[in-house]
Amino acid sequence: MIERFLMNTHYIVLIGVILLLIIGFFGALTKRNLIKILIALGIADTGVNLFFITIGYISGKTAPIFSKNGLTASQMVDPVPQALVLTAIVIGVAVLALGLSIIIRVYEHYGTLNVSRIKRMRG
């Protein structure tokens, strides 16, 4: 079952993806500092993006850019995931930027970044 999956992607990259995901979620769940949580979520996000890229990779093919003339589409890797990852990265950036600006506001009000103390609204 896993073989078919691994066949067209280097399994090292896959392990990298899984590691990134684990680090990301582990960091998000255990770290108390809000900024660290955001960074951890960013890591998880890059993990997923990496996974997306590895899906499109066909071994022995080159990047889907018509740089040199005479490069036919058949020699190129599947371009769709790469396009998607671009948007995903943009979205990741937007979320991070917005997160940081809100964190500034939160810091102004709470004086702390410890997530377990930012819970005036509960119950």
Partner: peptide
Amino acid sequence: LKDVVFNGDGQIYML
């Protein structure tokens, strides 16, 4: 129930 489920800590929600 209220205090356990909605305890206000963002991290717990992620958990």
